[in-house]
Design a protein around this nucleic acid. Structure first.
Length: 273
DNA sequence: AACAAGACCTGCATGC
DNA sequence: TGCATGCAGGTCTTGT
């Protein structure tokens, strides 16, 4: 679920609610996420003050006053919602953090592909998940030249490359699919066969689609919600994703679906070559 | 070394 | 109605 725009939306919605607040109580109801939550997680977290929330690609980083960092990833189905007061736990509410103003932060993740990790001050640089990330297309100074170099080196389908977080960090299946539509490039085309002029268009498309999605609060296909429990609206702007058989918004041709390494891709056979 | 397939989970829609 | 199947926003591990 949450790709870059959804995680950025969660960050913005949580920020005013948690900045400067102290964590006064931690309940781990289900430690078995993508990595098991450590036994001392709660003890280490209680008493810590939240000094800021940052985003790296699809990861959310809660900066704590001690220098420690609470790292969150949402997998396919994760959300963090802040409530004004204590609430009755729902199914799949795995971790609950009580703040000193009575608010409660709840991590819910039915599929448990998400991640919650308390990283000590000195150990952030060793964290493989973050260390191996490529450039964030909205944050970093990614140039068409370096994207072109990465594409030239690979014979994989261009969409697979866009999903490779060590190359570009933050794109997922929805936004990779949409960016390729805007750039007029078929997701199955070999990366090395994307021409230079197309790389420029592709990078522009990636940035545009991500920015527009952030502006609309992300895409709520089924269950994505921001930190206040509100949906996003970018799903209304999707041009090909999950639109198999529907007419292309540009030329009217029927949108096609293909499966690439186990994931659905959608494209217009007329507009994307 | 690069790449694909499988595994990890639950929930929902679809079709018989 | 019930059951089986396939699919879902991600990424880690395993094997070729």
């Amino acid at each position: 679920m949450p790709e870059l725009p959804e995680v950025e939306t969660i960050r913005r919605s949580l920020q005013p609610r948690v900045l400067g607040r102290c964590i006064v109580e931690v309940e781990v109801r289900e430690p078995r996420l993508r990595r098991r939550i450590a036994d001392n997680f709660a003890a280490r977290l209680v008493g810590q003050r939240i000094d800021g929330i940052e985003r790296r690609a699809k990861y959310l980083l809660f900066r704590l006053a001690s220098g420690d960092c609470l790292v969150a990833h949402f997998g396919m189905s994760g959300t963090i919602i802040v409530h004004d007061t204590r609430v009755r736990p729902e199914p799949h509410d795995h971790v609950r953090l009580r703040l000193d103003d009575g608010a409660e932060l709840v991590l819910n993740d039915p599929r448990r592909f998400g991640l919650l990790l308390l990283v000590a001050a000195g150990e952030m640089n060793d964290l493989a998940e973050l260390r191996d990330l490529g450039v964030d297309p909205l944050e970093g100074d990614l140039r068409a030249e370096s994207l072109a170099a990465a594409l030239r080196r690979s014979r994989r389908p261009v969409k697979n490359l866009l999903l490779d977080q060590t190359v570009l960090a933050g794109l997922g299946n929805i936004y990779a699919t949409e960016a390729l539509f805007r750039a007029g490039i078929r997701p199955t085309r070999r990366a090395c066969r994307v021409r230079r002029a197309e790389v420029v268009r592709l990078l522009d498309s990636i940035r545009a689609v991500l920015r527009e999605a952030v502006d609309l609060g992300g895409s709520s296909i089924s269950d994505y919600r921001d930190g206040n429990g509100r949906p996003g609206y970018f799903q209304l702007r999707l041009r090909v994703y999950d639109r198999k058989g529907e007419p292309c918004s540009l030329c009217g041709a029927a949108i096609r679906r293909v499966v690439q390494t186990g994931r659905s891709s959608f494209y217009c056979p007329q507009c994307q070559r």
